[in-house]
Amino acid sequence: MTSSLSLILIFISSLFFSGIVVRTKSIFSGRKGPGVFQPIKDILRLFKKGAVYSETSSFIFQIAPSIYFASIIMAILFIPFGNMPGLISFKGDFVFFAYALALGKFFMIIGAMDTGSSFEGMGAAREALYSMLVEPAFFILMGSLALFTGHTSFADIFASLHFGSHISYAIGVLATFVFIIIAMVENSRMPVDDPKTHLELTMIHEVMILDNSGFDLGLIMHAVNLKFAMYGAIIANFFLTPGYEWYFSIPIFIGAQVLFAIIVGTIESFEARFRMSHNSQFIFMLTSISLLIFLGVLLMLGKIV
């Protein structure tokens, strides 16, 4: 029961996450904006709608969104809550986590290729390239944490992360920064992609799902929320109190999610989207930041004198 806590909390946070992002953006731009639960209402409406399928597409197009969504739920099952491990936990589970997400991406990409549209092919190619570039950052970060704590599973790593010295704070902050950017890239948000853009040529994620409609589109839209909440949960784990005091942990968790959503909204309000050609450099920069974290860990452990 306790191990499903993170799953439940992530589901709850996913309901209001996009709402807060949209709300933040509207406040910054001086508009009143929709309510916090408007995005989830839109998704519920989509679930009830019929769909139009392209004549070019095959069954791949129909199964892709389900597999994508399933892969994200799968990934969420690994997320621990404080020192309570997730529903599934074993040594090296973050490898499975990353590869399960990659499986979902694989199907989304070929789903887009299935429509035979030049636009969707374009989105697919970009998604494939950027997700490839962002992956090393995650693994090097996890490698650094594994080196730091001596453990190789999400639950053990977060349970034994202790915030004693100053450098460990620095590592926590840097790691949070990396995770925020990873979340932004993975969800195709601002500095890399603009979900609100109106020109297909400049989109990444949105142009990939041009042909999806109805239930499938709802799944894809909610997948974004879930993914955000999932990364929010990972970030929250850096700051959760050790021990089982749920009355501390749960408010911290929700607070971290809300703060994360506000940060996303703020970034989206003040940042402009990069030129496509600069995206690869930007994403690869993340890897160097995680290498910096790695060096920091080496420094702390006294391996570099």
């Binding site: 019929g50 769909a51 139009v52 399928y53 392209s54 070019t56 636009f119």
Partner: peptide
């Protein structure tokens, strides 16, 4: 999706 109407058309260009 069985309950709702699904149609097919050309790929959105």
């Amino acid at each position: 999706t069985e309950k709702v109407i699904s149609t097919s058309g050309p790929t959105w260009g």
